[in-house]
Computed example of a mutant assay.
Amino acid sequence: MSDAPLRLAVIIGSTREGRVGDRLAHWFVAQASGRTEVKVEVVDLASFAFPNGYPNRATPAMSAFAASVERADAFVVVTPEYNHSFPASLKQAIDFAYDEWHAKPVGFISYGCRSAGQHAVSQLRAVFTALHAMTVRDGVGVDLLDGDDVESLLAAETPVQAAQVLLDQLCWWGLALRDGRTARPYVS
């Protein structure tokens, strides 16, 4: 069993101009900042020059993304909901890695109108199950129809408590699965 901090990657899944995902990700990083058992890395898909199509060989950007997934012990995926699903940019990036996701926990921060992004999360759970990742039960959902000021929405008690529950679950599962992978390599 390792005493090293849990390496948590917060993946910003939207690449749209004017997105809300980057603000949610940085808010979550601030929520995690008081935890000494966690080391957070933000992985912003907008900062990768991914190819438009899927090439025969991985590009440097694809390899860099897969390396960030490999380094992490756990993930928080920040996703919008577009037409009851998650963005193509996120699916493309998820598919650039495979073994790197195995036996690691994934949590979600979602946002959208009315459903707070829960349709996107539902579909992402199926995708991550196929990748042999374990999704945690609780997450953070933000309904953008509740107000124009996202920072005020996030300052409320409910999202702050939800973030702490999400961190608790990710830390427990992340440490348990990391110890498990160390003791016995995962087989798919």
Rank of each mutant, 00 (worst) to 15 (best):
S2H: 08
D3F: 11
L8Q: 00
I12V: 11
E17L: 13
R19K: 12
R19P: 07
R19T: 06
R23V: 09
L24E: 01
F28C: 00
A32D: 06
S33W: 04
V40T: 13
V40A: 09
V40G: 04
E41S: 07
E41K: 07
S47Y: 11
S47F: 10
T59G: 04
P60W: 09
S63W: 10
S63T: 06
A64Q: 11
A66Q: 02
A66R: 01
A67P: 05
A67Q: 15
A67S: 12
D73P: 04
F75K: 00
V76W: 00
V77T: 03
T79Q: 02
Y82C: 04
H84Q: 13
H84S: 13
S85D: 14
P87F: 11
P87N: 11
A88D: 15
A88K: 14
S89R: 03
S89M: 04
A93V: 13
I94R: 04
A97T: 05
Y98K: 09
E100T: 05
W101K: 11
W101I: 07
A103N: 12
A103G: 11
P105A: 09
V106I: 13
V106D: 01
F108P: 03
I109V: 14
S110R: 06
Y111F: 09
Y111T: 03
G112Q: 02
G117P: 08
Q118D: 11
Q118C: 11
A120R: 03
A126M: 15
V127C: 08
F128I: 03
L131M: 15
L131V: 10
T135H: 09
T135N: 14
T135D: 15
D138W: 12
G141A: 14
L144V: 10
L145H: 08
D146C: 15
G147C: 06
D148P: 05
D148V: 13
D149H: 06
L154N: 01
L154K: 00
A155G: 09
T158R: 14
Q161T: 12
Q161E: 11
L166N: 00
L167P: 04
L167F: 10
Q169A: 12
C171W: 02
C171T: 14
W172N: 09
W172Y: 15
W172R: 13
G174A: 08
G174Y: 00
L175V: 15
A176F: 13
L177A: 08
G180C: 13
R181A: 03
T182P: 07
T182Y: 10
P185D: 08
Y186R: 10
V187G: 11
